[in-house]
């Protein structure tokens, strides 16, 4: 369903700050795949997602989703195919807007924005139910400003927003990294729940090797803008953290960040 062919991206080309962030990425995802992505800092993981969503244009290569060529499509037009959750809980929501307004905005992703009410009574009831299912006590705070919520609550709402209308592809960029371990576990569990329920094709970047192994049906390791290891199916299920660390050092220049080691 997702087909990435030979994508390159260099930031600030020709300057002293030149950075080859992606150097020939080829990746094909099947519908329903849940891929976890690991790799050191600066490996190009976030850039890969930015290429898919169109935050920056690619230097060369093509990106297709279900046969639709996205390569030249502006980011806001591609958005209808995607749901995305960032590492920073601030990034996925509009802080000055109410919880229900944020959800209503996400519900209209890919649809024309008209002069009809921005949120209907029926939607409100639906949001209340969805929020109740999160079990974070948000179902009675529909009209609270999102900026008043904790990082974990905001991240849970962003996840809800990202999956509200069944995206073709869900992209999670270390979306639990900024949360305390307990909240992180909860948000991760919620992620699994939603992804399994709606069978959403998912890419999840994580710095936690255990999580990378425990979740999804395929695992990718990136280094210096390349995919250096790609494992799926039973082989992936059998993977252990020490093996993964082994692969990591085998992958050449791949340096393990302290953070990755600490949390494995």
């Amino acid at each position: 369903m997702l087909k990435i062919e030979n994508v390159h991206k260099t930031f600030n080309p020709g300057t002293i700050n030149e950075k080859k962030a992606l150097q020939g990425i080829n990746l094909t995802l099947e519908s329903g795949d849940f891929v976890t992505v690991i790799g050191g800092n600066g490996a190009g993981k976030s850039t890969l997602l930015n290429m898919i969503t169109g935050v920056y244009p690619v230097d060369c290569g093509t990106i297709e989703i279900d046969g639709i060529n996205l390569t030249k499509m502006p980011d806001y037009k591609r958005a209808k195919f995607f749901g995305r959750v960032f590492q920073d809980p601030m990034m996925g929501t509009a802080a000055d807007m109410q919880i229900e307004e944020n959800l209503a905005l996400a519900l209209r992703r890919g649809k024309p924005r008209t002069l009809l009410p921005g949120i209907t009574r029926k939607e409100r009831a639906m949001f209340r139910e969805l929020l109740a299912a999160l079990d974070l006590g948000l179902e009675n705070r529909l009209t609270s400003k999102v900026g008043l919520l904790s990082g974990g609550q905001r991240q849970a709402i962003t996840l809800l927003m990202a999956t509200l209308q069944n995206p073709k592809l869900l992209m999670l960029d270390e979306h639990t990294a900024a949360l305390d371990p307990q909240t992180a576990a909860k948000v991760l569990e919620l992620t699994d729940q939603i992804v399994n329920r709606d069978k959403i094709t998912t890419i999840m970047i994580t710095h936690n090797m255990k999580d990378a192994i425990a979740h999804g049906n395929r695992l990718i390791m990136m280094d210096s803008g390349r995919i250096v290891y790609d494992v799926s199916g039973e082989e992936k299920q059998r993977l252990t953290v020490p093996e993964l660390i082994q692969k990591f050092s085998e992958s050449g220049g791949g340096m393990l960040s302290d953070r990755t080691l600490l949390q494995s």
């Binding site: 806001y76 037009k77 958005a79 990034m91 929501t93 307004e101 209503a104 008209t114 921005g118």
Partner: peptide, 27 residues
Amino acid sequence: FFGTEMGHSIRATGCNLNMARSNGINT
């Protein structure tokens, strides 16, 4: 107006540009 779908999308644009765009809003 600012309670309509259009109005919401304008407020989101001012509040968090990236969030607005990733929700399909032509900022």
